[in-house]
Design a protein around this nucleic acid. Sequence first.
DNA 1: CGTTAGTAGTTAGAGTTCGAATGATTAGAT
DNA 2: ATCTAATCATTCGAACTCTAACTACTAACG
Lengths: 168, 168
Amino acid sequence: MSNNSMIDSSDTAPSTGSAPADQTRLLLKSIRRIVRANDLQSRALAKATGLTGPQLVILTGVAELGEVTTQALADHADLSAATVVMVLDKLEQRAIVERYRSTSDRRIVYTRLTAKGAELVNSTRGLFGAGLVQRLAALPAARRQELIENLGAIADLVTDATKTVALD
Amino acid sequence: MSNNSMIDSSDTAPSTGSAPADQTRLLLKSIRRIVRANDLQSRALAKATGLTGPQLVILTGVAELGEVTTQALADHADLSAATVVMVLDKLEQRAIVERYRSTSDRRIVYTRLTAKGAELVNSTRGLFGAGLVQRLAALPAARRQELIENLGAIADLVTDATKTVALD
DNA sequence: CGTTAGTAGTTAGAGTTCGAATGATTAGAT
DNA sequence: ATCTAATCATTCGAACTCTAACTACTAACG
């Protein structure tokens, strides 16, 4: 199970002493695992429900936010506006949402659920991360809270770190 | 800032009582943030170094594992074998790695670094997640440890949850 | 030996994602 | 009033990812 491969870290460790090289590697590994799980989950969801992960995310976003602009939806879903547009195109084709331009400012496009969309939300919302809910529920409340808070902290950390790439 | 949109949670909450619906939503949100940060970081890295995220991950994997099979690399990097092959194709084109078949079992393909690849690893390894390292180093050691352990636990959780999609 | 099953790697096809460029519309300055 | 700058949404091009075939090869069993 455990592979202590004894990699030569040689002189990679800086003199600062804190040098969490192994910790960083571990963290990056966990992130990749999470990213992959997310992808796999999305595909499985698509097969099971006909809606992919992002489609469901956007759909839920529209359900929660009501009449909503594209950009607001992008912020809410943590996706770029371009991606949101693509997802909305598909949802609109299937008459799950509808879009219309604001009359006061014709640049703005609002999105809202159709009746069909509202139905769909109710029937699929429970499915969204169902396995996760079960596993979370199995944990003590305090532990659950701890995990979620720490995950949020990590998200802050990496989001922030995105802004620092190669500043020499 | 806070939008208490008063969504009708109506009867969605099961009778179990624990029902961490909000917690789940929060967790999924954090996951999407992490996924996105990962993507953005990869693109920024590509622009800065000419190597994309996955390319660097695989490259580092080869550096750590030495002579390594495609599948072992896939496991190490948390990617499918297909993706690894595609990445290796590109790295091989650029003479960063080389591949050769095993003589004892001709199905097996080993990958190893070229001299050029070894050089590249040394020059870019520090760049990999540099922003993250800084931010981690700024934290107290105990806190750092806590975050990393909990992230690992989350990764276990979601990896595991992938196997459960829609079992009624 | 020869057929069958299993394994390692690869290719094909479909889907997501982003940044950059574009079009339309509005707000602001002169 | 008009010209310029900013804003919102969208389209375009490139990259990554996966699963599901497919090929090549080895092993196992009669």
